[in-house]
Simulated assay, not measured.
Amino acid sequence: MSVSGLCELCTQNEIVDGCDRCGRLVCERHYDEASGLCTDCLTEVEPTGDDTRRPDGVDTYRV
């Protein structure tokens, strides 16, 4: 991606890529290359710890 500017999450570092889910332009620190998501969206899609928020039998959500 060829853009310049500051990360929309930290407003300190240069933009590396955009989130595939919300479209925010984020720096390397706030972008997960494997998923293509910013760190905010990643925590919403893949909650940390136990998965008590997911109904029984559901292990994948599609957005």
Rank of each mutant, 00 (worst) to 15 (best):
N13L: 04
C10Y: 09
R53N: 15
T11G: 00
M1S: 14
L6G: 04
G5E: 03
L6Q: 10
D50Y: 05
D56E: 11
E14Y: 05
C27W: 03
L6A: 14
L9G: 02
V45N: 06
E33D: 11
H30Y: 14
E14P: 14
V58R: 04
E14T: 15
G49E: 08
T60W: 13
G36D: 10
E14G: 09
R21F: 06
D56S: 11
H30W: 09
M1D: 14
D50R: 07
C7Y: 03
T52G: 09
T48V: 08
T52K: 12
T60F: 12
L25A: 11
N13Y: 10
T48H: 13
E28W: 13
V58A: 06
D59P: 01
C10G: 09
G49K: 07
S35Q: 09
C41F: 10
D32S: 05
T48K: 07
L6K: 12
D32T: 04
C22T: 05
M1R: 07
T52V: 14
C19V: 05
G49F: 14
D17P: 01
T60D: 10
D50L: 15
E44F: 03
P47M: 02
D20V: 07
D40R: 05
C38K: 01
V16S: 15
A34P: 02
L25K: 06
V63A: 10
V26H: 05
H30V: 01
L42G: 00
H30F: 08
D17Q: 15
D51E: 12
D40K: 07
D17S: 13
E14F: 14
T39M: 07
V58S: 07
L6T: 10
M1L: 11
E44I: 01
V26I: 13
P55L: 02
L9I: 11
R62W: 11
V16T: 09
R53M: 04
E14L: 15
L6N: 13
L6C: 14
S35K: 06
V63C: 08
L42W: 00
Y31E: 01
V16N: 08
L9C: 06
I15L: 11
Q12A: 12
S35L: 09
P55H: 01
C27D: 13
T43A: 14
M1E: 10
S2E: 15
R24K: 15
L25Y: 08
P55M: 03
V45A: 08
D59Q: 10
